[in-house]
Design a binder for these strands. Structure first.
Length: 137
DNA sequence: GCCAACGTTGGC
DNA sequence: GCCAACGTTGGC
């Protein structure tokens, strides 16, 4: 199983919005970036991901599971863009902020730290474990 | 609200 | 195919 990080502006689509969708989940649509799209093509059903709030929060706030692999993005007619579907699994007892990731030398290679603008990014197993630990899981 | 970083577009 | 111009994202 692989691990990922999904980034969203909470004003547009927040963790609470995701939780409200329950097990039905929701399309992770609106990605207009080739690098992120290419990662989504590698994502498999059952993969886990962090849900990150950019802008005001700048924190990893929850864990999601992939329930549908890459398929055309229904929010555009442009067939270059695809999306996956995810559902909320559980919140992090303690959100892990960007500052915490930057302060932890073990996380200095995280895509989140190094590539601020990438909206879908891979997370290594070690990084996953460390962030869960920091988050109180 | 500003600005740096980065991705995309289009002219050559 | 290169690169300048432009647009967008996201941290501060």
């Amino acid at each position: 199983m692989a691990y990922w990080l999904f980034k969203s502006e909470p004003d547009v689509w927040s963790w609470d919005d995701q939780v409200a969708k329950g097990d039905a989940g929701e399309e992770w649509d609106g990605v207009r970036n080739y690098q992120a799209r290419n990662f989504m093509r590698e994502i498999k059903i059952g993969d886990r991901g962090f849900f990150y709030h950019s802008q005001s929060d700048k924190a990893i706030v929850g864990i999601v599971e992939v329930i549908a692999e890459a398929h055309p993005d229904s929010t555009t007619d442009d067939d270059r863009w695809e999306c996956v579907d995810i559902k909320a699994i559980e919140p992090l007892p303690k959100p892990v902020t960007l500052a915490m990731c930057k302060d932890d030398s073990r996380l200095s290679d995280m895509a989140l730290v190094k590539q601020a603008r990438l909206s879908v990014q891979p997370v290594t197993e070690d990084e996953w474990r460390i962030v869960c630990e920091l988050g109180g899981l």
